[in-house]
Amino acid sequence: MAISREEIEKVALLARIRLEDNQVGALEKDVGNILNLVDQLQSADTSSVEPLAHPLDATQRLRADEVTEHDQRDAFQRIAPATEDGLYLVPRVIE
């Protein structure tokens, strides 16, 4: 299955990855080849098969509602690109 230039651009926007114009062509080809590879899936008869999300079919263990974490803001913000007054800074968000 082929993927169009527009689809590549749409998916890149969803994934928040900027593409330069000269990258789109190569991606069209590579992603198209990958989609061809995965198209083998369509040959499988899965009409009565339940999807498998986890190999062990286990169920979720639930945690007691107890505080186990303590403030480590300084440690976390030391490795942050931009902070002020304990806040992470990003370019102005317009709502």
Partner: peptide, 8 residues
């Protein structure tokens, strides 16, 4: 579909 094939 892939998750179903995964079970197979």
């Amino acid at each position: 579909k892939a998750q179903k094939v995964r079970r197979l």
